[in-house]
């Protein structure tokens, strides 16, 4: 028992060290966001922001906070749309063996290779014609194109691991395909749901290309576009650019930590229940 506690404590320490190493660049970004212009290229660099300047943060807090809500809205919208589209498709590919599934799989693969800028330029024409330029939900549609092929492939990979017996049993119990999907497949695939949600949220949150091409003139713009304000015509205000990134990532990071805790708890509970 004590050795177990000891080991757990040792793991925690190692975990903290690893996380610290991983997040060093993030720390460095924060450090830069606090560094006055004249010290940014100081050699050797200051390891700690000893003479912090908060001008970047002040500017960002004054200008950018409303955009956070838009980013959140777009992120959650993208998660929803991605799940709705990709979970049933992943199930079909993994378990229903439709003819032409291989071809569809390849198409999904190719779809992911289309560079973002090409997609964005394609959307430009499509959005103009549909009249959904500069709307936040148009951006949700665009952002989910990054995540949908990913989602389908992840769901297919995870759902192919569900034992067929489980599904046959449901069939014997008289459940139709849809019911089998919602009552058995989805709950068992909780991990895949979490993974896909996580990445679709992250992609939408940090997207720049689509936002810039399709929503630059909109009234509801995500926070990534806020960085623009600090990109002068000849000069970049790196304090403020970095500060925007820091401020934009704090609420999302909190959300992630909470979600992970919830999910971790849910998965354990689920495992017992199953």
């Amino acid at each position: 028992m004590t050795s177990r506690v000891l080991r757990s404590r040792r793991n925690t320490v190692i975990g903290i060290v690893l996380t610290a190493v991983m997040l060093f660049p993030v720390y460095w970004m924060i450090n830069v966001s606090l560094t006055p212009q004249q010290d940014m290229r100081k050699s050797p660099p200051d390891l700690l922001p000893l003479h912090p300047t908060f001008t970047g943060y002040r500017a960002v807090l004054d200008d950018q906070l409303p955009y956070l809500w838009v980013s959140l809205l777009i992120g959650l919208g993208t998660v929803t749309l991605t799940l709705v589209l990709s979970a049933p498709a992943g199930y079909a590919l993994a378990k229903l063996r439709p003819r032409g599934a291989g071809l569809l799989g390849l198409l999904l693969l190719i779809a992911q290779m289309v560079p973002g800028i090409v997609m964005a330029m394609g959307f430009y024409g499509i959005f103009l014609n549909l009249g959904i330029m500069n709307t936040w939900w148009g951006l949700v549609v665009a952002d989910s194109t990054i995540a949908v092929p990913f989602g389908v492939m992840i769901f297919a990979a995870f759902m192919s691991g569900i034992p067929d017996e489980l599904l046959s049993a449901a069939k014997v119990d008289g459940a139709n395909l849809w019911r089998t999907f919602t009552a058995i497949v989805l709950p068992v695939s909780r991990n895949a749901v979490v993974t896909v949600s996580l990445f679709s949220f992250l992609w939408a949150w940090s997207d720049f290309v689509f936002a810039n091409t399709l929503d630059a003139g909109g009234d509801m713009r995500p926070i990534t576009l806020g960085i623009y304000k600090y990109i002068g015509n000849n000069n970049q205000e790196w304090n403020a650019i970095m500060a925007t990134a820091v401020i934009a990532s704090i609420p999302a990071a909190v959300l992630l930590v909470l979600a992970q805790r919830y999910v971790a708890a849910g998965v354990t509970a689920g495992a017992v229940k199953d």
Binding site: R7, S8, R9, N11, T12, G15, I16, L18, T19, M22, L23, P25, V26, M29, L198, F199, L202, W205, S206, F208, T224, I227, I241, A245, A248, S249, A252, A253, L256, V257, A259, Q260, R261, V263, A264
Partner: peptide, 20 residues
């Protein structure tokens, strides 16, 4: 171990930042 979910979540922070 203790803190594992939190630390694991922190590992995702790089993905929250715009690539620029």
């Amino acid at each position: 171990f203790r803190l594992a979910p939190t630390l694991r979540a922190l590992f995702l922070i790089p993905w929250l930042l715009p690539l620029i």
